[in-house]
């Protein structure tokens, strides 16, 4: 019995680690979709760019220098990539979601193909930085040290993003734009610049998540669509354009993917989308989707 409890506590802990990573991945997607109505299907590709960067830089051997270098480079690429995506979707702002989704899907496909050409077809692994590559004993069982650290890093990033959005003027502007884009324009704020800023920061978080997720997920062809679907599920469950929603959605999905699969192994393929269906039936706008968040 104690063994059973300990094993499930490890699943809970693991759900936190996965949830932390999912939050970093999904919050940018949520804000960009909620604010500017741009469904950025290239978000998964940005994650994979980060993962491949980490694989490439740590390919010669794991070191802190390589790992932090990958984080820094991924952040810069994320900023530039996000800004570029924002500019690319700008001419389509008055068009339907579908047009923007098709454009970003096209970008995602091109990026994925280029990554495959540059880095090859074989799946690549990303070693955790020295000191974090071992295991720590938790509840009497070995648990990867890196994942413990990941929980902490995710928490720090979540607090950082929350402070930025809830406690700064830029954040107030972001929230205002989520709620009523036209009104923001009416008080004389150029919301294209707000959009570029949020797009760039959200994309930065996606590429950084790719590096952080490297030691867990590796880098491989097809990973982009898998993580994109996870991020979309997080956004749908949490509600659009809400930091709190993205955080809760990510933690819920983390637990479903971890504890849910551990408790219901026979329904492993079903629990994720079962939970999604349940949320959509009970709260069609997601757990934290406001009435105004998804309008216009």
């Amino acid at each position: 019995m104690t063994g059973w409890v300990a094993a499930n506590l490890i699943s809970v802990l693991n759900g936190l680690a996965i949830g932390a990573l999912l939050f970093v991945l999904a919050v940018g997607l949520s804000l960009v979709f909620g604010m500017m109505d741009v469904l950025n299907l290239a978000h998964g590709a940005l994650f994979v760019v980060g993962a491949y960067l980490a694989a490439a830089l740590t390919g010669g051997g794991a070191s802190w220098g390589a790992f932090l270098g990958a984080l820094g480079l991924a952040a810069v690429i994320g900023l530039l990539g996000g800004g570029l995506l924002s500019v690319m979707t700008e001419p389509l702002r008055r068009r339907s979601h579908l047009d923007q989704a098709l454009l970003t899907l096209g970008v995602a496909l091109i990026v994925a193909e280029l990554l495959q050409i540059v880095f090859g077809d074989d799946p690549l692994a990303v070693p955790a930085p020295p000191g974090l590559d071992g295991s720590t004993s938790v509840f009497g069982a070995a648990y990867p040290t890196y994942r413990l650290v990941l929980i902490g890093v995710g928490a720090v990033l979540a607090v950082g993003v929350w402070l930025l959005v809830e406690r700064t003027t830029l954040g107030a502007l972001v929230r205002a734009t989520v709620a009523d884009r036209d009104m923001v324009a009416a008080i004389g704020v150029d919301n294209r610049r707000v959009k570029i800023t949020v797009f760039a920061l959200g994309s930065l978080l996606a590429t950084v998540a790719g590096v952080l997720g490297g030691p867990v997920y590796g880098a491989s062809v097809g990973l982009d669509s898998t993580v994109l679907i996870l991020a979309l599920v997080v956004v749908v469950i949490g509600g659009l354009g809400s930091v709190r929603g993205a955080l809760v959605g990510a933690l819920v999905i983390g637990q479903i993917e971890s504890l849910g699969r551990a408790l219901l192994p026979d329904l492993a393929s079903f629990v994720l989308f079962g939970a999604l269906a349940l949320v959509l039936i009970v709260r069609p706008r997601g757990l934290f989707g406001g009435r105004s968040g998804a309008t216009a």
Partner: peptide, 22 residues
């Protein structure tokens, strides 16, 4: 619109939700 606002033209809109979280 944004530039006109800066030059002193201000408006209220017919359908507005204002900013729900503020």
């Amino acid at each position: 619109e944004v530039a006109r606002c800066r030059l002193g033209m201000s408006q209220t809109l017919q359908h507005t939700s204002l900013f729900a979280s503020l």
